[in-house]
Amino acid sequence: MKTASQSTRPRVPAFLIGGSLIVLLWQLLVTVSGIPHFLLPAPFAILKTLFSQIQLLGLHTAITAFEIVSGLVIGCLLGVVSAVVLSTSRRLRRWLLPVMVISQSLPVFALAPLLTLWFGYGLGSKVVMAVLIIYFPVVAATFDGLRHTSAAMLDLAATMNASPTTILLQIRLPAALPSMASGIRVATSVAPIGAVVGEWVGSSQGLGYLMLQANGRMQTDLMFAALLCLCLLAYLLYSLVNRLLDRCLYWLPDSSNSTITQTEAH
């Protein structure tokens, strides 16, 4: 049962407490053990580099962010269109679905040199890499959602003389939105991998490129600072996408705050 003190006490986010503890332990470990700076820099040294190199890190973060967001938009659009095509044509499904599944067994690292060769050292190859990694989760989830539209809704629409296009746009796609959203959430969390791998293989800008450069010059603190920027970028992007999707799915009840979940959390 909730007490008055429990409900009014301001809560410190759990991850902040956990994160602070890890940072303190890390700082302690580096100070006490005397691990060389180039092997494991202290957290405060990383923070110092983060602020001193903020302009450089900001520039490369913006480039990586652009690659990820472009890949996300293009990948999601392509994924949704592909899922719609797959759901409407059995023949195409028979041909394309196995190809899509098999293509996922190819590691994106293996394709990176080829894509750099084909699309150059600029933003293009990184965006394509992000698209490739985003595409399949979106297709699979959206296709699944489109396949499982409630029969009652479809029957109703048929008796109301709705055209197949109207049924697709006004019933099947909105009904598939929860599945599609799951796919987009997964895609958002893996999108940075595509962009950064692309930057590692061949580029002159972006956080992946900066990490490689810093690694080559033994600037481990800068490498960690770039990694921190990438983590923050990924978290920010996921939070934004998650919030946007929650808004689109306004009709779905959120059971995460139910009594059972609360009880489990305690």
Binding site: S150, A152, M153, D155, L156, T159, N161, I171, P174, A175, L177, Y250, W251, L252
Partner: peptide
């Protein structure tokens, strides 16, 4: 017949959105 029929099923078929 199709044009003269309205259909009401066990599942109310309401669109949740």
């Amino acid at each position: 017949l199709r044009a003269r029929i309205a259909y009401m099923a066990q599942d109310d078929g309401l669109l949740p959105w």
